[in-house]
Amino acid sequence: MTAATPRPRRGGFTAALAATAAGAAALAAASGRTWATGVVEVAGPTAPAPVELAGTDLAPAASAMGIAGLAALAALVAARGWPRRIIGLLMTLFGAIALQAVWSGTRPAELARVAAEQATTDGRVAAPDLAAAWPALAAAGAALLVLSGLATAVRGPSWPGMGSRYDRHSVPRTARTGDPAELWKSLDSGEDPTLDPAAPDTAAPPADARCPSTAPRTTTTTTVPETGDNPRQKEP
Rank of each mutant, 00 (worst) to 15 (best):
W103D: 13
G149H: 04
E110W: 01
A133L: 13
V146M: 11
G156F: 07
A75L: 15
T220N: 02
D188M: 06
Q233A: 14
T92I: 04
T202F: 05
S158W: 06
Y166N: 03
A36H: 00
P172R: 13
D196H: 02
P157M: 03
E117K: 00
G88C: 10
R155D: 10
A139S: 15
G161S: 15
R155M: 11
G105P: 02
A26V: 02
V40C: 13
T221P: 00
V171M: 03
L93Q: 09
S164R: 14
P6W: 07
L183Q: 14
A126K: 07
S148L: 09
L137V: 15
D192F: 01
A116Y: 02
A3V: 10
W159G: 07
L150A: 15
I86P: 02
T5V: 12
A203R: 13
P236M: 12
A204H: 00
V51C: 01
P231N: 11
L99M: 13
A198N: 09
R176M: 11
A49Q: 10
A74E: 07
L70S: 05
T106F: 01
D201C: 01
T218C: 02
L183I: 10
G95N: 02
A29Q: 09
Q100F: 07
S63Q: 12
A127D: 12
E41D: 12
P172S: 14
R155Y: 08
A181Q: 05
A127G: 06
R10H: 06
P225W: 07
T34Q: 04
A24R: 02
C211I: 06
L130C: 06
G161E: 07
V171K: 00
G156V: 06
T5F: 08
P206V: 06
T2V: 08
L93G: 15
L53Q: 01
T92C: 12
T46Q: 11
G149V: 08
V146L: 11
A15I: 15
L137N: 03
S186N: 13
P48D: 10
A59G: 12
R10N: 04
P180Q: 01
T227P: 01
A136V: 07
A79I: 10
P172A: 14
G66Y: 06
T46P: 03
R165V: 05
A132R: 14
G66T: 06
M162S: 11
A127S: 12
A199F: 00
L70D: 03
V171A: 15
V39W: 00
A207V: 10
A26R: 01
S31N: 03
L53T: 00
A140Q: 04
R10V: 12
T194D: 08
M91N: 13
T219E: 09
A199Y: 02
G55S: 07
A29E: 09
D129H: 10
Q118H: 15
E41W: 04
T223S: 06
A21R: 02
T5P: 09
A62Q: 05
A71N: 00
V77H: 03
A78C: 08
D179P: 00
R168S: 12
P60L: 05
D229T: 07
A16K: 06
A98K: 02
V224C: 04
P157G: 02
A72C: 15
P231F: 10
E117N: 02
G66S: 05
A133F: 08
T46K: 11
L90Q: 01
P157D: 04
S186C: 07
A140C: 09
I67T: 12
S164D: 15
T120E: 11
R232D: 13
V146C: 13
G123H: 00
E41H: 05
G156W: 06
A72G: 14
